[in-house]
C-alpha cells in the first residue's frame, strides 16, 4: 500500500515535470520574428488609372518552428495621397466596423535560416477583410539577413469575394481586382 502511494506520488511528480517541461519548451524552441512597421500596399484600378493606398504600420509575426504566419493591418492607416480618397476607401472598407485586414496561416515550405539567398516560400491560411474570411495560398520571398527575416509578397483578391462594393463615379467603376503587396523586415525575438 505504501509502495503504491510512493509510485502514485512519483507518477504525479513526473507528470507535473512533463507538463512544465512542455510548457516551457514550446516557447523556448519557437523562433519568432516580429515587426510592426512593415509596408502594405493596396492598389486599385479605374479605367486608365491606378491608385495605391499605402501603410507603414503592418504588424507581422512568423514562427519558424511552428511554421505559422500572422499579419494584420489597421486599415485606417492606409494613405492614398488624397485625403478625400482615403475617406472614400475607409467608407468602402467600412473600417469603423472592420478595422483590420489580416492573414493567419502556415508556412508550406521550410525556411532555411542559414541560407542568405532569397528563398521562395508558400503560405496557406485565411485572409480576412471587411469581416469576411477566405482561405488562400500566398507566395512570397524570404531573405535572411542576420537576425532579420525580410519578407515580400504579392497577391490579388476580388472585392466581391469579400462583399466589398467598389465605389463608382457615374459609369466609371473601380475594378473588382485589388492588388495587395507587403514588404516587411521581421526581427528575431
Amino acid at each position: 500500500m505504501r509502495a503504491q502511494k510512493i509510485i502514485k506520488s512519483q507518477v504525479k511528480w513526473y507528470l507535473i515535470q512533463y507538463i512544465v517541461f512542455i510548457y516551457l519548451a514550446i516557447p523556448l524552441h519557437g523562433q519568432n520574428y516580429y515587426a510592426e512597421n512593415g509596408t502594405a500596399r493596396f492598389t486599385s484600378s479605374v479605367p486608365f488609372y491606378e491608385f495605391t493606398g499605402t501603410s507603414n504600420q503592418l504588424t507581422g509575426l512568423i514562427n519558424i518552428t511552428e511554421n505559422s504566419v500572422d499579419f494584420y493591418l489597421d486599415l485606417e492607416t492606409l494613405d492614398s495621397g488624397i485625403k478625400k480618397r482615403d475617406k472614400d476607401m475607409r467608407l468602402t472598407l467600412e473600417t469603423k466596423k472592420f478595422p483590420f485586414a489580416e492573414f493567419y496561416g502556415n508556412l508550406l515550405d521550410q525556411v532555411d535560416l542559414t541560407e542568405t539567398k532569397p528563398q521562395k516560400i508558400r503560405t496557406s491560411g485565411n485572409f480576412s477583410i471587411h469581416g469576411i474570411s477566405q482561405e488562400m495560398e500566398v507566395s512570397g520571398e524570404i531573405t535572411i539577413e542576420q537576425n532579420i527575416l525580410h519578407l515580400t509578397a504579392n497577391w490579388e483578391i476580388r472585392l466581391d469575394d469579400f462583399e466589398i462594393i467598389p465605389p463608382s463615379l457615374l459609369i466609371v467603376k473601380v475594378d473588382q481586382i485589388q492588388k495587395i503587396s507587403i514588404d516587411i523586415r521581421l526581427e528575431k525575438q
Partner: peptide
C-alpha cells in the same frame, strides 16, 4: 497564443 492580439494603430 500564436495569433497576435489585434491593436489599433491610430
Amino acid at each position: 497564443q500564436a495569433q497576435m492580439e489585434r491593436k489599433r494603430s491610430l
